[in-house]
């Protein structure tokens, strides 16, 4: 198990509660979303959440990417952690969708992650990150 964070605050210690548990009046500040659960149910509570962990049961299951963007577009600023089958070849997508922590079941080499993130100099789309898309670079 590897945890790589792209945040300067301290990692949240307690494990996330389930979505059902959270919605059932929990005061928890961390929640774990299984793939297939509707992250929009969290939108009223984003202010008090510090960690949202999104499960990737297999790297092929890409639902978590949309979940992440929905949360970031709604203004969530806490930690967004991709957990599970998180592979080097997906880290660019994950980061661009707004994940700022990667928790991988298999060892993930930090240097290789850095290298992967530096591989592509530009991006065509506007996404959940500060970098400007190519069309913005072209036209200002």
């Amino acid at each position: 198990m590897t945890l790589i964070r792209f945040r300067s605050d301290a990692a949240h210690e307690e494990p996330g509660v389930t979505l059902d548990g959270f919605l059932g009046q929990s005061n928890a500040t961390a929640v774990r979303i299984e793939s297939g659960e509707d992250v929009r149910l969290l939108l009223p509570y984003l202010d008090r959440l510090q960690l949202i962990e999104i499960a990737f049961p297999t790297f092929r299951d890409g639902r978590g990417y949309s979940s992440a963007r929905i949360l970031r577009e709604a203004g969530y600023t806490g930690e967004l952690r991709a957990q599970g089958d998180v592979l080097i070849d997906q880290v660019v997508f994950l980061r661009r969708c707004g994940f700022d922590a990667l928790s991988s079941e298999k060892p993930l080499d930090e240097a290789a992650v850095e290298q992967a993130l530096a591989r592509f100099p530009y991006f065509y789309q506007k996404a959940a990150e500060p970098r400007a898309p190519v069309w913005k670079l072209r036209h200002g």
Partner: peptide, 14 residues
């Protein structure tokens, strides 16, 4: 083509 190339959200669709 540009929008869909390496789209971060839609590269692992069903």
């Amino acid at each position: 083509r540009q929008w869909s190339t390496f789209h971060p959200e839609f590269s692992l669709l069903p």
